[in-house]
Design a protein around this nucleic acid. Sequence first.
RNA 1: GUGGUCGUAGCUCAACGGUGGAGCACUAGGUUGUGGUCCUAGGGGUUGUGGGUUCGAUCCCCAUCGACCACCCCA
Length: 454
Amino acid sequence: MADQAAVNDDLDSIVPVGPPYQTPKGVHDILPADHEYYTYIKKVIRHRLRQAGFRRISTPIFEFTDVFQRTLGETTDVVSKEMYTFQDRKGRSLTLRPEGTAGVVRSYIQNNMQALAQPVQLYYIEPFFRYDRPQKGRYRQFWQVGVEVIGESDPALDAQVIQLALIVLKDLGIDQLFSLQLNSIGTPESRKKYVAALQDYYFGKERHLCELCQGRLQTNPLRLLDCKEEDCVTLAKLAPSFSEYLDDESKEFHADLKEFLDELGIKYVENPKLVRGLDYYAKTVFEFWDTSAGAQNAIGGGGRYDGLVELMGGPSTPAVGFAMGIERIIANMKRAKVRVPHKDEVHVFVAQLGKEAKKKCLPLIMKMREHGIKTIGALGKGSMGAQLKIADKFGAPWTVIMGLTEVREGVAIIRNMSVGTQEKVKFEDVLEKLITLIGKKNLDTYHPGELLYG
RNA sequence: GUGGUCGUAGCUCAACGGUGGAGCACUAGGUUGUGGUCCUAGGGGUUGUGGGUUCGAUCCCCAUCGACCACCCCA
């Protein structure tokens, strides 16, 4: 007894505050109810991207830190404060991926995808990790769907990528909630010139800037332009405009893109202040903004990253892509009251009393499932009342009831749970009867046999 | 990373510094082969956690964990 107490004391000393175990800050379980959203969203994405000739890729959840560090930009928020970086047992620095593009580009180079037909069109549906203060729609582990088109430079590809994002949003019933924000940030060279001009302009005016912007002047001068502090706004109004520095090629590219978007009937908002948080973007950048209630929350975004493949050691290769946050998609579907089919709901509950009935029910249940009837059987003990109660909780629209009487008569009872009526059906007709009641199109059928051998 | 709001039963929420309650949910019975409706009864809580102030703390103070909001940023 004394030993037991000692053990408990030890346990007390190692258990952290709070309940014994709970998820760390900013991460959560995806429970069955939400998985119906994930499943449906994945289904839409797979279909739409397959139609467009995209193939799915998964890269590792962690990479060498370098994959992200230099490519996303040392001074970006993501790299400077949001990465989960750790050392493995041999002291190598690894990082949980905070975004998808860098890993895909690494894979493109490592697997010699430049040898494939270009452009290479890839998509992914994967979890990502950022150490940030959580909020609704902002978590430390989150899922993104992303697409990358690598190996060709043409504004028509940018237009297609944007269109794909919109089709997916439309299929999910939430395209109307967002506005497409569009901008061109030019080539790295023209941006460099512009940044220098901006810094020039702000030189000597630092003390008029808010504290935040004083830091931005060094790290990310483009952000100075959309600060909301009054003095910063005033200064930004007189600052040199990027259009003066935008190179001709980027200008032409952007004009073509807009023409293509018009042709596709895609509406966009030209937003000269749109800047993305990662350094690898060039020319086209875009985001989908939730504009309700003055919010500027993005559900997704992307752009062109022509220099990234080369930066990562591959041949000079143009590319464009986008990513959307699945948790944010789900939140918006709920906000818009968009329901997803409840594929998990069972069709039939099988209740039985007695061993003989159970013997008859087991093969019947198997046969029902083979035919696509989602079936749960009460195979344990329990009174008829208890079993029906369970059937009710599962929300099964039909219950098959078998007792000794039915076994003797060679019948089963099929009960309509919503109305409360029931009928006796010959045992060998039960399956057919249920299929009729449920409706062929509602069956959850699975057809093996697509495999090819040899 | 900065500022703020909040944390009470499984869920949604009450309770002036003075014995922690309600609705829903759950369990059992009314109903020995019939659920969901109805009636009756019942079980449930170290008030997130750890300290402090107080005769006494769900309430006041500090710390910590978590959720959310505004920044920031983006998914």
